[in-house]
């Protein structure tokens, strides 16, 4: 009801949207950088790839065999939305920002 609470309300909604998204991945442990274990695993693999075109989705799948494809895709989508990674030569190749 207070009119001056408007700016803080909009700030809060930005922060919450990120938190809700991480919650969707069903991983309750959140490390210091705000990513889930799954998201960190995917990000670290992409970071570790020395090729100029980046890591492709097939490589991610073969290196994360214990992980369902949908889970890997979710992590990739999240990291892409947050700006941690970006696609290069096509939509299946990713580099870390």
């Amino acid at each position: 009801s207070k009119s001056h609470s408007q700016p803080s309300a909009s700030r809060a909604s930005i922060g919450n949207s990120g938190m809700n998204e991480t919650g969707n991945f069903g991983n309750n442990f959140i490390p210091a950088n705000g990513l889930t274990v799954t998201q960190n695993q995917v990000l670290n693999l992409i970071k570790a790839c020395p090729r100029p075109e980046g890591l492709n989705f097939q490589d991610l799948r073969s290196q994360l065999q214990h992980m369902p494809i949908a889970t890997i895709k979710q992590a990739v989508d999240f990291l892409s939305n947050e700006g941690h990674i970006y696609s290069t030569v096509d939509d299946d190749h990713f580099k870390s920002t």
Binding site: G18, G83, I85, Y86, K95, T97
Partner: peptide
Amino acid sequence: LVRIQKNKAAALLRLAARNV
């Protein structure tokens, strides 16, 4: 190359926006 640079720039902007 242009596509890659554009994607990278967009990703950096998103990352920056999250860290404001």
